[in-house]
Design a protein around this nucleic acid. Sequence first.
RNA 1: UCCUUCUUAGCUCAGUUGGUUAGAGCACCUGACUGUUAAUCAGGGGGUCCUUGGUUCAAGUCCAAGAGAGGGAGCCA
Length: 497
Amino acid sequence: MPLQNCIFAIEFRNFNKMKRTKIKQLLESGDAGSKVTVKGWVRTKRGSKNVAFLAINDGSTINNIQVVVDVNNNENEALLAKIHTGASISIDGLLTESQGSGQRVELMAENLIILGEANPDEYPLQPKKHSLEFLREIAHLRFRTNTFSAITRLRHSMIFAVHKFFNDKGFLNIHTPIITGSDCEGAGEMFRVSVFDPKNPPLLEDGNVNWKEDFFGKETNLTVSGQLEGELAALALSEIYTFGPTFRAENSNTSRHLAEFWMIEPEMAFYDINDNMDLAEEMLKYLVKYALENCMEDLQFLSKRQQEEESQKPQDQRSMELIEKLKFVLDNDFARISYTEAIDILMKSKPNQKKQFQYPVEKWGTDLQSEHERFLVEKHFKKPVILTDYPKEIKAFYMKQNEDGKTVRAMDVLFPGIGEIIGGSQREENYEKLLNRIREMHIPEKDMWWYLETRKFGTVEHSGYGLGFERLMLFVSGMGNIRDVIPFPRTPKNAEF
RNA sequence: UCCUUCUUAGCUCAGUUGGUUAGAGCACCUGACUGUUAAUCAGGGGGUCCUUGGUUCAAGUCCAAGAGAGGGAGCCA
């Protein structure tokens, strides 16, 4: 017996309680012959007359460890009768080379303890495939499925990779406010934050609510973007990013929208729109590469899952295999074209000439519909596309105005199957032009004094963008519904858990 | 918010032109089996057919309204 195992055995005797070893470690590098303790949740129980097998998972990996229990032992037999899918157990035992073919090592149970039973008449999860819709109804338990543990590990890796990417480039992470007092952020409907009794708020003489008496002394809402505050920091620290919760009170019922989501918003001084596009492309490729290098087992599981689902669809609607798709994005430059060029391509396109678009493309100036974006990404270029220089009328007030007087330096990154994954722009740094645009678009000027002052004092060219984190997760995981890549989705009429 | 599809056992689903006692697989219980891989085999228990109203001799099935869910669209990230 190797020396380290002897020491382990002595510790076992002395303390009668061993330190838990995680299943990932045991499966990857556990030595056959060592005594170990495993704790986790039972996925399946199966067996025959003399021996029972428990598949145990502790979330450290997609894989289970097989625990072998001798049934010819009254104590074990009684315990096994109480162990069902979902029960939590602790096992001390000997790690051995597996006699079966499904795994390298398995655990011969010597001391089996039930930590928490799971009544099979009530426990909703079974060792079988459940629908994603059903799992959404039991979001408190869906972490215990292979799919959600894989997504949760992948999500963690992507969060970590975002911070690593920016940290390694010298960006500073800043926390922008979640409660905001300005309603000029221009990104849709907001959730009100108030401490007033909704049935009896203090009123002014004219009957309107007297917000001056509310907690902050003004109307406040949950943020729809950290961009404006992010710009303030970038205009001192050069390169910053935010990664925080974002709230939109839009009544959006789609597989790509959440009322509460997480957004990554870098802001960079001295970056023009081309630097901005370079950063966005580099970041997306870095994140995809990080997933391929660090989450391969989970990606393989998710790929298999997706392939099974896709096999139900007709041939022409199936998407590329997940890992192949991720590598494809990594290996190809994104197409970069202007809005004007895009309109040109669309107007000349077959579906437009054959009137197959629901919204025909007829003239410069209208916003692109998702069917148009999909055509450009999935049919015409067959790879991610960055669209730039949109008409100013369809974009936000803060975007830098081009010299043509018609367009602004916006950029949208479009991904296959997802649509807009990033929206950004070079920002207008000229005080007069910005002020004019604020007035033209009827943005409350008095709330913008601090934003405008950055253009008054030491203004510089700068840029930034917003990446919807869950949309990134959709792409990297291959999942089809955004509600399945965030632990507890918040959507219209749903704030359960 | 609009269009569209769906709702039958704990889960996944079948249920024909309206017709007698609503089915299957999985899960659960009992038994069999010398090491299984979502084990297998035999047997058993388990139903507000989403809700309300209507048509009909008769409704899981047809009609209307409502609730919930999916897919698509708009808004966007």
